Simulated scan of single mutants.
Amino acid sequence: MNKFTPAKPAGARSVDDITGSRRLRRMRKAPWSRRLVQENRLTVDDLIWPIFLIDGDGRREPIEAMPGVFRLSVDMAVKEAERAARLGIPAIATFPNVEMKLRDQTGSAILDPDNLINRATRAIKKAVPEVGIITDAALDPFTSHGHDGILRDGIIVNDETVEQVTAAAVLQAAAGSDIIAPSDMMDGRIGAIRDALDANGFAEVAIMSYATKFHSAFYGPYRDAIGTAGLLQGDKKTYYLDHANSDEAVREAEQDLAEGADMLMVKPGLPYLDIIRRVKDELQMPTFAYQVSGEYSMIKAAGTNGWIDGEKAMLESLLCLKRAGCDGILTYFAPTVAEMLKG
């Protein structure tokens, strides 16, 4: 001990006494050793790319609240699906922005076999059949009030909504959808959709249930993207989950599994890592998260302003979702991440 080394109090233990030969930092000392012991990895196979659709041709319309994300006409969506195939992204999820003249109280345009979402599915599946297509049978892009269900006397009616969502799911499967992902959170919708798909010859079409979709403040930019911002009458608390409840979320997921769901989704993602972990551990089924528009826009905005390293925050956020138990992630960062991983 030299004069600069403080004396240990009598009876004090050294670091070696405390840890013995176990020094956890040993494997962190070099890039190669950190790679050897890394527990979770993000790959292109984990990515699902949500895209937004609009009518017309040659249209690529920027979404102000989501920098770098666009509303795409069907022909441009096909080009992006081709890009997804080149990057190795397994699947895309499509969300339409329907013209106001086509919206009504019941969202009846969802029952048009040639509506925007079905036309896009047919075109994409024809051009790039190797890319999976996930479609949402919810009514909110088609209603004049912005709700996910049919509105009667100020109430979202469950069973009538389920009947319409089920019919829409069959039409989407007929157009070529590989996975129906109903996001409306109506009771009984998964069982009704499964029965209808099977009865109409679509037994191989899977269902990804938005099993635990929470009433969240993180959906704002999405509503701008699909054109429902400002339309919503009231809120969605009577059918979306209360973000204070985790036991209820697991019960919702269990019920959807019992009705025939093939995959479960937690939405939003990062604020609900505990829900992802519970769903994965307790139900042991393929589990996905939707890194929603608000999560995307916060990272983009903070990165653009230089408040955080946007690229590192993007990758960290996605890896955290993997660590929590996700088998896959719906994220608007998908093409950017795929290009980075490919490079």
Rank of each mutant, 00 (worst) to 15 (best):
N2Y: 02
A7P: 08
P9C: 11
V15W: 04
V15I: 12
D16W: 08
I18E: 06
S21M: 04
R23I: 07
R23E: 10
R26A: 14
K29W: 04
S33V: 09
R34F: 02
R34N: 12
R35C: 06
L36Q: 10
Q38V: 08
E39C: 11
N40K: 15
N40A: 15
L47S: 12
G56T: 03
R59I: 12
E61V: 14
E61C: 10
P62C: 12
A65H: 09
M66A: 14
F70T: 13
V74P: 08
D75M: 08
E82Y: 01
A84K: 09
G88Q: 04
I89Y: 03
P90D: 04
F95W: 07
P96I: 00
E99R: 15
K101C: 13
R103H: 03
R103P: 05
D104H: 12
G107N: 06
G107P: 06
I110K: 12
D112K: 11
L116A: 14
R122V: 09
A123L: 09
K126I: 03
A127I: 01
E130T: 14
T135R: 10
A138Q: 09
P141Y: 01
F142S: 11
H147V: 05
D148R: 12
G149E: 00
R152A: 07
D153L: 07
I156L: 09
D159W: 02
T161H: 03
Q164T: 13
Q164I: 07
V165S: 14
V165H: 10
A169P: 12
V170Y: 02
A174Y: 05
I179M: 12
I179Y: 05
P182V: 03
G188F: 01
I190W: 02
I190S: 12
G191H: 10
A192S: 14
R194N: 11
A196W: 03
A199W: 03
A203Y: 01
E204K: 15
M208Q: 10
T212I: 00
S216H: 09
S216T: 15
S216E: 04
S216P: 13
Y219L: 03
G220S: 13
P221T: 02
A229V: 07
Q233E: 11
G234Q: 05
D235N: 15
K237E: 01
T238P: 03
Y239I: 01
L241F: 00
H243Y: 03
N245C: 11
S246K: 09
R251Q: 13
A253M: 04
Q255G: 08
A258I: 07
A258E: 13
A258R: 15
D262T: 09
M263D: 04
L264D: 04
M265Y: 01
M265C: 08
V266G: 07
V266Y: 01
P268L: 00
G269D: 00
L270M: 09
L270Y: 00
P271V: 02
D274W: 00
I275D: 00
I276M: 02
R277I: 00
R278F: 00
E282W: 02
E282D: 13
E282T: 10
M285I: 03
G294S: 12
G294C: 13
S297C: 11
K300S: 11
G303N: 02
G303L: 01
N305I: 05
W307R: 10
E316Q: 13
E316P: 10
L318F: 00
L318T: 01
R323K: 11
R323F: 00
D327F: 08
Y332S: 12
F333N: 08
A334C: 11
T336N: 09
T336W: 00
A338V: 07
M340Q: 12
K342R: 15
K342I: 08
